[in-house]
Simulated assay, not measured.
Amino acid sequence: MTADLTTVLRNHLSDIDAGWSIGSFGAIGEFHQRPSDTLLVDAPERLTRVTEKGAIRLEIDRLDEVTPIAFETLSPRPERWGQGLALCLPKQKAMGSKRSALTEIGRDAQALHPAGQTQILFDMGLGQPQIDFCIRTSEPELLKVLRAETGRSLFEPDNPAMAAILKAHPARAVLSPLGRVEVYQKIGGPDTDGVSPDGPHTHVLPNLLRTGRTHSANTPIPEGLVPCANLHPASPVMGNRGEDIPFQRDRFAGFQALLTSYGLPDYLVTKTQVLAALDAADPDSLSEPGTRLKRVALRNTLRQQARLAELSADADRASICGQLMRRFDFNAATRDELGADPERPGH
């Protein structure tokens, strides 16, 4: 499995439409590429890529320990769905330092951008289970503030360190046992008109951090595993900025192959049942599943098959998909315990 997984990761690293993230529920670093980016380091043999805006490195020597989980998520829009590949470790191998106060680590010798290797790394002390969310700087004024406030929580009301960080926009490095994502662009906020920069960026959401969770409840990670890095393959229905795009059959087929290899059995069984009912033109053979995971599989498979039927001008299949979606998708959205994931990968 490791050789196959390594190949999957290398191939997607060279796909500028794929995205990557390392984070927890409330603190995340994302690496995205754009055609105009300058490629500074391209080292697929080390699962490393660096641009002028950000970088990623995955720990290739630890892939033997990884359980990959391919998954699909619901979108708030019924013509869409999300997809991802979570690289998971057993809980006992997945934990970070869980520092709860601002801490100076020292020079970042492992920095992916050469300029960062002489800068000073600080753990922001977010106390998250599987990640250390850090900033890196050599800016004298920021270093002065950070060193004066080490040992304190950034969220103390009278702590000036967070305001200094937001003003200076230092590089961020999000570390997990499986690698790191670095971001060199500005922090989303007042200086970016309240939106995250296009491409690599970070999010820190204090209200979500307080849950102490490793991932969203909408990401179906089996008990005992923790996602330590995520691949977000290019969406067949959505562009990099969250815009609608014409259905991309090759992207869809590519991820379905990943899902077959790494998806959860109950999810795959439900997809097979839905496809069999559609092929037999027997919508009455389907009933609402009893688990959350299977309900997502049912709804997403119908959405996908409706898009494929539209693409191939198969009016009969599209009609059956519409009938089943009215029965299981739109009505279920008002009573299901599931929320819907955000529209853009990694968010």
Rank of each mutant, 00 (worst) to 15 (best):
R10K: 15
H12W: 02
D15K: 07
S21Q: 02
F25A: 01
I28L: 07
G29C: 03
Q33N: 01
P35E: 03
V41Q: 04
T48M: 12
V50P: 08
K53C: 04
E59Q: 08
I60A: 15
F71K: 12
P76C: 08
P76I: 13
R77K: 12
G84L: 04
A86C: 08
L87C: 02
P90N: 13
G96W: 04
G96M: 06
S97Q: 10
Q110F: 13
G116C: 03
T118G: 13
T118K: 10
I120M: 08
I120F: 01
D123I: 06
E139C: 03
P140Y: 08
L142Y: 09
L142K: 03
L142R: 08
L146C: 03
G151K: 04
R152E: 15
L154F: 01
A164Q: 02
A168W: 03
A173C: 14
I187F: 04
S196T: 15
P200N: 07
L205Y: 09
T211G: 15
G212M: 11
A217D: 07
N218P: 01
P220I: 06
E223M: 02
L225T: 07
N240L: 09
D244T: 07
R249Y: 04
F252R: 09
G254Y: 02
A257K: 15
L258Q: 12
S261Y: 01
K271V: 14
A281E: 13
T291I: 05
T291V: 05
R292A: 12
R292N: 11
R295P: 01
L302K: 09
Q304Y: 01
A306S: 12
M325C: 06
R326L: 14
A333F: 08
L338I: 10
